[in-house]
């Protein structure tokens, strides 16, 4: 039961927010994180088109041997990705709360430019109180 990290990916596939919470995954450089986020964006776009029943919101959970990533796609194509341990059960509700914090502290902030990296103390604070440092 652990939350390893959080990514926010904009609609173009750029990583606009990245934060690690607890150890358990290999530490990556910011460049590697950017590449991974871009790759996930591509994979996600493919999974959206793989659905046999028409429209799909794409991959929701991707599980590995030691971790899983839960993906929340918003109507504006921003993706929230939570990296957790396999036994973590709160990932979905946590992502909803992160989305709420994003709507409040990022979208209502006049100093944020849409689709650009998130540098907002208010958002950092909200995430810290949600997930911990």
């Amino acid at each position: 039961m652990a939350i390893f990290g959080l990514w926010v990916i904009n609609k173009a596939g750029g990583l606009v927010y990245q934060r690690n919470f607890s150890d358990g995954l290999a530490q990556l450089t910011s460049n590697e994180n950017l590449v991974l986020a871009g790759t996930l964006h591509g994979i996600h776009a493919i999974t959206r088109n793989l659905s046999p029943t028409g429209t799909s919101s794409g991959a929701h959970v991707i599980e590995g041997e030691s971790f899983k990533m839960t993906i929340l796609l918003t109507p504006t194509a921003t993706k929230f990705v939570l990296l957790t341990s396999l036994t973590e059960t709160t990932a979905d509700s946590m992502l909803q709360k992160v989305y709420e914090a994003y709507s409040d502290a990022v979208m209502k902030n006049p100093f944020h430019t849409p689709e650009m990296p998130i540098r907002s103390e208010g958002f950092d604070r909200r995430i810290t109180s949600l997930i911990g440092s």
Binding site: N109, P110, F111, H112, S120
Partner: peptide
């Protein structure tokens, strides 16, 4: 409540 002023301002 929802405003975070950047450091340079």
């Amino acid at each position: 409540r929802h405003i975070s002023v950047p450091r340079d301002m």
